[in-house]
């Protein structure tokens, strides 16, 4: 035993160190993925017997209006959530200066990311309230009709995304702020000597150096948009008549909510959502792999 250990110590040690992490990852991430895929082939209420339905859940899903509404909303989320990047960059550039009390301003801008999404949702629901909300009081003061943002099927998703952008912008801002700290002052200096300023400076000198920050910001924003759930649940509960649902919320509704408990159907939605995320995850892993090899 001791001899074996001595011989293979070098080879075994990394695996031993990895073991706790790998075990956790297997138990909480990898195995559940396969379990979900498995459940999606059954009709199951979570209590009784599972009944094998094959691809039945998927067939139903592709004929389900609510599924397409959720999918469409997910796309809108994905696209509009990307606004958090330029907005975050802008705030970061704005805050990247040394004036008295800048730390306070920075923390104030970062504040929405720290508070719970539930609170953000509540604040925005009050903001949009058709009778007493700030937005509609302002609209009325300007002579417009009040808009019940959260009760109007055409506005509701945009209203929720606007609420989501507030913390997401703060997140991107902090990523860019750290990125800006790492910018090489000599390059800026050199660019200045070559008479670069304004947009050109930003586009050709600053942004290329911010690429790692941009990459992370894109990834967290995509993931944030795809798993958007809390805001939908708090602000509209998927309504009005299900028009603000996103896939994550629809899955929850089908599988766990008061009127749901169709575990198989919920799992099928989860699998579809997983497939969409997989596109990004694969892209992410591929880029990491490429960077690692390039770095050697």
């Amino acid at each position: 035993m001791a001899a074996f250990w001595k011989r293979n110590q070098q080879k075994l040690a990394p695996w031993l160190f990895l073991l706790p992490g790998v075990a956790m990852f297997l138990i909480y991430v990898i195995i559940p993925i396969f379990q979900s895929i498995d459940i999606s082939f059954y009709a199951w209420d979570g209590l009784g017997e599972k009944v094998w339905v094959g691809l039945g859940n998927y067939v139903e899903l592709f004929g389900d209006e609510a599924f397409y509404t959720s999918l469409k909303n997910n796309v809108i989320w994905l696209v509009l959530y990307m606004l958090a990047l330029p907005a975050g960059l802008f705030v970061a550039l704005f805050l990247n200066q040394t004036v008295r009390g800048i730390r306070i301003y920075k923390s104030l801008f970062f504040f929405p990311f720290v508070i719970s999404q539930v609170v953000v949702g509540l604040v925005f629901s009050w903001f949009y309230d058709p009778s007493n909300g700030l937005l509609n009081l302002a609209l009325q003061a300007l002579g417009f009709e009040p808009v019940p943002v959260l009760a109007d099927e055409n506005w509701v998703t945009y209203g929720i995304i606007a609420a989501g952008l507030w913390p997401q912008t703060a997140y991107c801002m902090i990523l860019y702020l750290t990125g800006l700290n790492a910018i090489d002052p000599e390059q800026i200096e050199a660019a200045r000597l070559d008479n670069a300023r304004g947009w050109k400076m930003l586009w050709y000198v600053v942004l290329p150096q911010l690429r790692p920050a941009t990459f992370i910001a894109v990834v967290v924003t995509v993931i944030g948009a795809l798993r958007s759930f809390d805001l939908v649940s708090i602000m509209t509960d998927g309504g009005p008549w299900g028009s603000s649902r996103v896939l994550a919320f629809y899955m929850y509704e089908q599988a766990f909510s008061e009127y749901g408990f169709r575990m198989g159907y919920g799992a099928a939605i989860a699998v579809v959502l997983f497939a969409i995320m997989m596109v990004y995850i694969v892209g992410f892993l591929w880029k990491m792999y490429r960077d690692e090899r390039g770095g050697r």
């Binding site: 009760a151 309504g239 009005p240 008549w241 299900g242 509704e253 008061e258 009127y259 749901g260 408990f261 169709r262």
Partner: peptide, 22 residues
């Protein structure tokens, strides 16, 4: 309604009623 009808029917029904009212 949501105690007399099974959960799934109740949910779909109530969503329909809300939509109908608007």
């Amino acid at each position: 309604f949501d105690r007399d009808a099974p959960a799934e029917m109740a949910k779909a029904g109530m969503e329909g009623f809300q939509e109908f009212m608007v």
